[in-house]
C-alpha cells in the first residue's frame, strides 16, 4: 500500500502525461491525415509543426466563449467540465508498469489498484455520456439536440457489445483487476490470441464508443453541422475535443492492457515504454481508419451494432465460458 502522497504524485504525473498525449495526438492525427491525403499538414509552428498543439491551445483560450441566449447557463457550462473530468479519471485504474522499488518505498505501476477496476472504467464511461447529452440539450439548438440524441443512442448501443467483448478476457483471467490481468499475460500467451474475436469486437465497438470515424455520426458534419458541440466555442469546445481524444487514448490503453500484455514486451523489460509504444500503434490504427473509411449511414450503424456485433460478442463470451469450464 503506497502512502497517500505517492498516489498524489502518480495521479498528477499521469494526468499531465495524458494531457500531453492528447495534445500530440491531435498533431499526429493532422500530420498523418495530411500525408495520407498527399498534403503536408501543420508545418509552420516549430520544426515539423511540433508547436502546433500549443498554438492551438493559445488560440482556443483567447477565443470568445460564446453562449446562446436561450441556453440553460449552468448546464451549458457544466457539460464540458463533466465530460473532461470523467474521461481523465478513467486513466487512473490503467496499469502502466509492474511497479518499482524506489529508495524505501514500493511504488506500484497504477494510480488506483481497485479489485474491480474494469467495472470502474465502464461506470465512468457511462457517466461520461452525460456530458455530451447535457451539452447538446442545454445549447437549445436543433442541431445540438439531434447530435446529443445520436450520441446517446450510439453509445448505449455499442456499450453492450464493448462490455461483452471484454467479458471473454475476464472469464479467461478470472478477475476484474486490470493489474492482475496484465500479470497473467506475463506467464502465458497474450489474450489477443485466444480472444481474437473479442479483440475485433472490442476494437469496432470501441471505435463507435469514442465516436471515431467511420462511426462519427454524432458529429456528422454533412448532416448536423457538428452535433452536440455545435453551439460551443473557445476552450469549452476545446474541453469536448479533449474528452473525445482522452476517451480514445484510454480505450486504446484498455485494449493494450486486456489483449496485448500491457507493459510486458517481447525482449527487453522496458515496462512503461512498451506500454507507450503499443498505445501508439493502436492510436495510429484509429487515425488510419479515419483516413480510409467513409462514414456509415445511421440505420447501417444501428443494424451493425445490434444484429452483428452483439450476437458475435455474446457467442464469444458463451464459448469462452464453455471452454474454461471444460478445461478446468
Amino acid at each position: 500500500m503506497d502512502p497517500w502522497w505517492i498516489d498524489a504524485i502518480k495521479g498528477f504525473l499521469i494526468i499531465n502525461i495524458v494531457l500531453v498525449c492528447f495534445a500530440y495526438t491531435t498533431w499526429l492525427e493532422r500530420k498523418l491525415l495530411s500525408r495520407m491525403q498527399g498534403r503536408f499538414g501543420p508545418n509552420r509552428a516549430g520544426p515539423f509543426g511540433l508547436l502546433q498543439p500549443i498554438a492551438d491551445l493559445v488560440k482556443l483560450v483567447r477565443k470568445e466563449a460564446f453562449m446562446p441566449m436561450s441556453a440553460s447557463a449552468k448546464l451549458y457550462i457544466a457539460a464540458p467540465i463533466l465530460s473532461t473530468f470523467t474521461a481523465l479519471l478513467a486513466f487512473a485504474v490503467i496499469p502502466f508498469g509492474a511497479g518499482w522499488h524506489i529508495w524505501k518505498w514500493d511504488v506500484s505501476g497504477v494510480v488506483v489498484d481497485a479489485p474491480i477496476s474494469l467495472v470502474l472504467i465502464f461506470a465512468l464511461g457511462s457517466l461520461g455520456v452525460y456530458g455530451f447529452i447535457i451539452g447538446g440539450w442545454a445549447s437549445d439548438s436543433k442541431y445540438s439536440t439531434l447530435g446529443a440524441m445520436r450520441t446517446c443512442a450510439q453509445l448505449v448501443s455499442y456499450e453492450v457489445s464493448l462490455a461483452l467483448a471484454v467479458l471473454g478476457v475476464v472469464i479467461q483471467a478470472g478477475t476484474l483487476n486490470l493489474s492482475e490481468i496484465v500479470h497473467q499475460q506475463g506467464t502465458q500467451f497474450w489474450f489477443f490470441g485466444p480472444q481474437f474475436v473479442g479483440l475485433v469486437v472490442f476494437f469496432l465497438a470501441g471505435t463507435a464508443e469514442t465516436s471515431r470515424p467511420p462511426f462519427d455520426l454524432p458529429e456528422g458534419d454533412t448532416e448536423i453541422v457538428a452535433g452536440y458541440h455545435t453551439e460551443y466555442s473557445g476552450m469549452r469546445w476545446g474541453l469536448f475535443q479533449m474528452s473525445e481524444y482522452v476517451h480514445m487514448i484510454t480505450l486504446s490503453a484498455l485494449g493494450v492492457t486486456l489483449f496485448f500484455g500491457g507493459w510486458h514486451g517481447p525482449w527487453a523489460p522496458l515496462g512503461p515504454l512498451w506500454f507507450f509504444l503499443k498505445l501508439l500503434v493502436v492510436v495510429f490504427l484509429f487515425i488510419w481508419m479515419r483516413a480510409s473509411l467513409p462514414r456509415l449511414r445511421y440505420d447501417q450503424l444501428m443494424r451493425f451494432g445490434w444484429k452483428i456485433l452483439l450476437p458475435v460478442a455474446t457467442l464469444n463470451a458463451f464459448i469462452t465460458a464453455l471452454v474454461v469450464v471444460a478445461v478446468n
Partner: peptide
Amino acid sequence: AGAVMVMFLF
C-alpha cells in the same frame, strides 16, 4: 445512474 437514466434523458 448510467444506462437507465440515459434512456430517461433521451
